[in-house]
């Protein structure tokens, strides 16, 4: 871990890879990008989290694509099998493969970024640029609140069971219990947010003007160069794709 990536470098790399993969639209490239992300995740020690998060997203998508295009693809000509209205076509399977691998590659690349980036560094880097500081606040505050809310929800559930709430199987009973859990949660969160707003304003959050940063995030020139190159590459890929397939409405 000698090379410490500036958050923007990692973000640029992820975004440009995703854009190029989308523009290229070739499943071997998508598979290669996906595999490369997985290998990098293993080397950074986040493979478990990245792959499980990706699986939760991708498995239903794959199944859905397979059923949808594998069985029903009216545009397909090469029929491999047919049961009544369902026809398995080579074109449909190929379409499912193309889109499935493309999405998988993009998901893996972005998850690799979000599970390896240091959020404080990212927020600090965002506020150092001309990005509205409010954006960094929303991002970081959400990531702080999420685990805290899970704990709070558990406390609320315990407190309500203690008051005699028994969650039974029926849909209405569960929906009713849910309503009772949501109300204290929303109330407490809004209350806290109200005082946090007052505290933030008192500390100068609402006032315009320049800001400085306590955290120092190094941004070596080599990484800036890399980012510029990645941008050019991605732009070229998009441009190429647009030129090649522009007359979408005309002669195809």
């Amino acid at each position: 871990m000698t090379l410490r990536l500036h958050p923007f470098t990692a973000l640029t790399a992820a975004a440009c890879t995703a854009v190029i993969t989308t523009a290229a639209a070739s499943w071997p490239l998508s598979v290669a990008v996906g595999l490369a992300s997985a290998v990098l995740a293993v080397r950074r020690g986040v493979a478990g989290r990245v792959l499980s998060a990706a699986a939760v997203i991708l498995v239903p998508l794959f199944l859905s694509l397979l059923v949808l295009h594998g069985l029903f693809f009216p545009e397909g000509h090469t029929v491999l099998a047919a049961w009544g209205p369902a026809r398995v076509t080579a074109e449909g399977l190929r379409f499912a493969l193309e889109l499935g691998t493309r999405t998988a590659a993009c998901v893996l690349v972005f998850l690799l970024f979000s599970f390896t980036v240091s959020v404080p560094d990212l927020v600090s880097a965002l506020s150092a640029r001309r990005i509205p500081p409010q954006f960094g606040f929303v991002l970081a505050s959400t990531l702080t609140l999420l685990p805290a809310v899970a704990g709070r929800l558990e406390r609320i559930r315990q407190a309500q069971e203690t008051r005699g709430m028994v969650i039974r199987g029926g849909l209405w009973s569960r929906a009713g219990a849910l309503r009772l859990q949501m109300i204290p949660l929303v109330l407490a969160l809004m209350d806290d947010a109200g005082s946090r707003a007052q505290a933030l304003e008192a500390r100068g959050f609402g006032s315009p003007g320049p800001r400085t940063s306590y955290r120092d995030v190094a941004d070596p020139p080599a990484q800036r160069l890399f980012r510029a190159a990645a941008f050019v590459l991605a732009a070229a890929a998009v441009a190429a794709r647009l030129v090649v397939s522009w007359p979408a409405g005309g002669p195809s």
């Binding site: 959020v119 404080p120 927020v123 960094g136 606040f137 970081a140 505050s141 702080t144 609140l145 806290d192 005082s195 946090r196 505290a199 933030l200 500390r203 959050f205």
Partner: peptide, 11 residues
């Protein structure tokens, strides 16, 4: 509630 003084965005 001292926690409500904190920005929730600093590590």
């Amino acid at each position: 509630d001292a926690a409500s003084m904190l920005s929730t965005v600093r590590a």
